[in-house]
Write a protein that binds this DNA or RNA. Structure first.
Lengths: 219, 219
DNA sequence: ATTTGATTCAAACGACTGTTTGAAACAGGC
DNA sequence: GCCTGTTTCAAACAGTCGTTTGAATCAAAT
């Protein structure tokens, strides 16, 4: 088989370096040197650095989001008239993403990249991500509300946000988790990560809402 | 009173710009232009850009961490032989940080900056942050374990990590929360944020641990 | 072999970057 | 006023940056 084509080499290398060091810290020259291609190839194939960033993200995220939505549609079809089970909804959201982490080719680099993107405030990228995630937000938002009928939309949205943070942080720091938590490598497969994250976030979603004026120790 | 001294002006401006755009995307010339100081002043007062970054973070984070540890020591003293209450521990951790958000001077910029730092993978910065957070991690780690006697250290550590993610994401995106969650501005004070975050994370910490091999729908 | 479009190339443009340097200005003590 | 240390200044260094350009090379069809 022929060696990887130029475009793919740029994408793979950019993905790795962006994940390692961040979008702004990695220049096109860093990428082309590592990918052994010509600088102008980036502009030929992608048009700009910004467009390269979007392409790097989209090529992985689209299939993941597609799978998320398909899984959600599936559990919806199977549940019929019964309410959706929260853990199932969360599983549909987390699993496709964390499974990428287990892929030896993409592995830790893409997961970390997604985690990083979620904290990014670059306007162009933010707008792009909102576009990519629009349908997921709508569908999973509705599914979470359906799975949590006793919770107001406002509380559901806040807790969705906390959940997103927990998920992003986990993606971003997958390699640190082993060291930090003292977890041994065998136990650290993505299945157990998904399970743990579901345990934590499902409980969080179901938490009793505290009254607004919370008494606290006054110093 | 005399106008703000050069050093402080640099710190304030850097804080604001770093929070807005990130560390790598903001150059020293961006900072000095906005602060109306001379480029060499940065090197005179701080030595390097990296050192400026550290200084920006440390000047706010140190007092916050100091307050966290003091609050923790206080609730420890008050609880005597009784076990620490989880919500109290979490309050000690979150409140000092989220209260900065309510400060009209520092306000959203520092909170966002801390949120951003927590996802940062720059080696120098990461090492610096580990140093700044070492005592907090040790003390709160122990406190959480004491507050959750039925949970293994491994699970506590995983859940601590999820909690950190939820906290960071909330800090990083405070301004988006209003828009995203549909929360009206009045309800969006830091007290309610802290309360909500405690509700969610406390429940997550207390969640029942699922058995390792979780049956799931196989496609 | 020629034509055509696709792809890659090296050089260049116009900017920007963090760091350094020696001089000038400032501020306080004597 | 002089001395000393502190602080600010403008210029410069040696790079680096994303984008552009016209030419060369490649590849496929005729």
């Amino acid at each position: 088989m022929a060696k990887t084509d130029t475009k793919t080499r740029v994408l793979n290398t950019a993905e790795r370096l962006f994940a390692q060091k961040g979008f702004d810290a990695v220049s096109l020259r860093n990428i082309i040197a590592a990918a052994k291609v010509n600088l102008a190839a980036v502009h030929y194939h992608f048009g700009s650095k910004q467009a390269l960033v979007h392409a790097v993200i989209a090529r992985r995220l689209r299939p993941i989001n597609g799978e998320r939505l398909a899984k959600l549609a599936e559990i919806r079809a199977k549940s019929g008239r019964r309410p959706l089970k929260l853990e199932r909804v969360l599983d549909c959201l987390f699993r496709p993403l964390f499974r990428v982490q287990a892929d030896p080719k993409a592995g830790p680099t893409f997961a970390r990249l997604v985690g990083r993107v979620m904290g990014e405030r670059n306007e162009g990228l933010h707008k792009f991500m909102m576009g990519e995630l629009a349908e997921v937000i709508i569908q999973f938002g509705a599914a979470l509300e359906a799975a949590l009928p006793g919770l107001t939309k406002e509380e559901t949205d806040w807790r969705s946000h906390f959940m997103a943070g927990a998920m992003a942080h986990t993606l971003c720091n997958a390699d640190l988790l082993v060291r930090f938590t003292g977890t041994d490598a065998n136990a650290s497969d993505y299945e157990s990560t998904v399970r743990r994250l579901i345990d934590f976030t499902a409980a969080g979603f179901r938490a009793k809402v505290s009254p607004p004026t919370r008494p606290h120790k006054k110093k």
